[in-house]
Nucleic acid binder design. Structure first.
Length: 523
DNA sequence: TTCCGACAGTGGGGTCGCAAT
DNA sequence: ATTGCGACCCCACTATCGGAA
């Protein structure tokens, strides 16, 4: 199949707003792709590469050769070149890599170049990723989408699952099994504003499932687990071989020897466990997230690093233990298996209750201990990967500040033509403002339109084409998760996960929060 | 007919490892 | 030694579609 066939379908998908229409376009192409190129087509049309990453980013793509006129490149040819680029990127020479990238793009029309540029920079923006592609694979293969989704959970990689479905149908999908040593797609959590709302949400999720089973369904009892601010890990053990994977299924086994040893210390040797690694201080309180992230990301001299910054692991789920796959069992049964397998010191602290007051006290306790918050889990939910919402709901405390908008950046995509990304500053009592970071979150279309107009009225000073500097006149209420050390901003600190709550026209700039207030919040 | 769950999009800060400067 | 780049940790929020209620 030619690349241009895929590009044309991608463009049709982009033009179609209805999801069923997108699915139709994708399924039509999947119906005519050959078995040896199915994986490539599925990957490209869901915004991924068979190689996962090849070492080419936005900067490299700034400088590509002129296009040719005839579209003759096949999927296999493009895929082959990308594999060579990945191989070269893995072992040095920028020049060799650059040469191959040039060779690749020189063989493409401008239409194909535009597609591949977006694909490689991770910005396909056609309105279809895994979720839509799952439906397309189902439609093209004749298998129910639930089977596609299930296979994706177990295999963790949709192009492989889709190719199997197209060639082997429903039987091929049902042949996927949990395989120790190969990561599964991790279950994700939705969120709620507070503990009461999380319990409410869990109750609703439960009442859906309650039809078939349940005393639990009626009781309102849920599990509350500490949410640790570390790195999500999936640990596999087969005999004496342990592998550790991240949320995106990357292998970090060599970076976390403490975890490997902890798993080898368990009496069972056929295991898949889900948990969190985190760096704790000698008194048991957590280090800032940056410390854990730095430790886990470091690959060099891990032996020395672990002396200075040891990692702890806390498990909260078991997908395989006692010789059985547990994904389809209810949470409560998986917990029992986990408790039989893992000693108490390696378990995430949890409380099972239906009492809101007790839940709120538990929340206060975990926050006092310096941790991130709680995850509320229904006792009946199976391990459903990739889908946020239903079974697990996270709750975190929320801080707010009244800050001043110092500048704004023009948006992209659906925010084209709107001033979108705000530069946020705290008031310096000595005079002026100190920038603490940016945010684009929390803005409705209406607010985007309003602020674009308003900002242009108070635009002042230098503009580089991206950023519009403003007279500091507008106060905005910002929510955030915490203040972290920053090497980037002049005050040496930045807000984590900042988002807009509302503008504060009732507040003058000289009533905005000060850098001293912000500094007092830094951990 | 209305409601709501799932998805995609729009970007944020920090860190590491490596190659080029 | 420093800088730029790519990759990947953590992530919040809104708009939209389409099936559920």
């Amino acid at each position: 199949m030619l690349l241009i066939d895929v590009v044309r379908v991608s463009e049709a998908v982009t033009r179609t707003s209805a999801r069923l229409g997108k699915v139709g376009h994708l399924a039509e192409l999947l119906g005519r792709v050959g078995p040896d190129e199915a994986e490539i087509a599925i990957a490209y049309l869901s915004g991924e590469l068979p190689q996962r990453q090849v070492g080419v980013g936005w900067r490299t793509l700034q400088d590509i050769p002129p296009p040719r006129l005839a579209a003759t490149a096949t999927l296999a040819q493009v895929d082959g070149l990308l594999s060579r680029i990945k191989a070269v990127s893995g072992q040095g020479s920028q020049a060799a890599r650059k040469g191959l990238v040039t060779e690749l793009f020189a063989g493409l029309t401008s239409q194909e170049q535009a597609f591949l540029t977006r694909l490689l920079s991770g910005e396909l923006r056609q309105g279809a990723l895994d979720g839509v592609m799952i439906e397309a694979v189902a439609k093209a293969s004749g298998a129910p989408s639930a089977d596609v989704r299930r296979a994706l959970t177990l295999r963790g990689w949709l192009p492989a699952v889709g190719a199997a479905a197209l060639s082997g149908g429903i039987d091929a999908l049902r042949a996927f099994r949990l395989e120790v040593g190969r990561p599964v797609a991790p279950m994700l959590a939705g969120s709620a504003a507070n503990v009461a709302a999380a319990l409410e949400k869990a109750a609703q999720a439960r009442s859906h499932a309650a039809a078939q089973q349940s005393e639990d369904g009626a009781s309102g009892v849920v599990a509350l687990e500490w949410k640790l601010d570390g790195i999500r890990v999936q640990a596999h053990r087969s005999g004496e071989d342990v592998r550790v994977f991240t949320r995106t299924l990357d292998d970090i086994t060599n970076q976390v020897p403490e975890l490997v040893e902890a798993v080898l210390g368990l009496s069972e040797s056929d295991l898949v466990l889900d948990g969190e690694v985190i760096a704790l201080q000698p008194d048991g309180r957590p280090y800032p997230f940056q410390v854990t992230a730095s430790r886990v990301a470091s690959k060099l001299d891990v032996a020395r690093l672990r002396e200075r910054t040891p990692l702890s692991v806390f498990f909260f789920d078991a997908l395989r233990a006692g010789g059985e796959d547990l994904l389809d069992l209810p949470y409560s049964a998986r917990q029992e298996a986990l408790a039989r397998t893992v000693p108490p010191g390696l378990l995430t602290p949890r409380l099972v209750t239906g009492d809101v007051a007790k839940a709120e006290a538990f929340f206060a306790e975990v926050v006092r201990a310096g941790h991130e918050g709680l995850v509320v889990k229904t006792l009946t939910s199976p391990y459903a990967a990739g889908r946020r919402g239903a079974g697990w709901i996270k709750v975190k405390p929320r801080h707010t500040l009244d800050l001043v908008v110092l500048a704004a950046e023009w948006g992209h995509g659906r925010r084209e033509g709107k001033l979108s990304n705000l530069h946020l500053g705290a008031r310096d009592p000595e005079g002026g403002f100190v920038m603490l970071g940016k945010t684009f979150k929390g803005l409705t279309d209406e607010l985007l339109a309003w602020q674009t107009e308003r900002f242009l009225e108070i635009a002042d000073g230098p503009t580089d084409g991206w950023t519009v500097t403003l007279r500091p006149e507008l106060v905005v209420e910002i929510a955030f998760d915490g203040v972290q050390r920053s090497p980037r901003y002049p005050g040496g600190m930045a807000l984590r996960f900042a988002r807009v709550i509302r503008y504060r026209p009732d507040k003058r700039v000289d009533e905005a929060d000060t850098v001293d207030t912000v500094r007092s919040l830094m951990v």
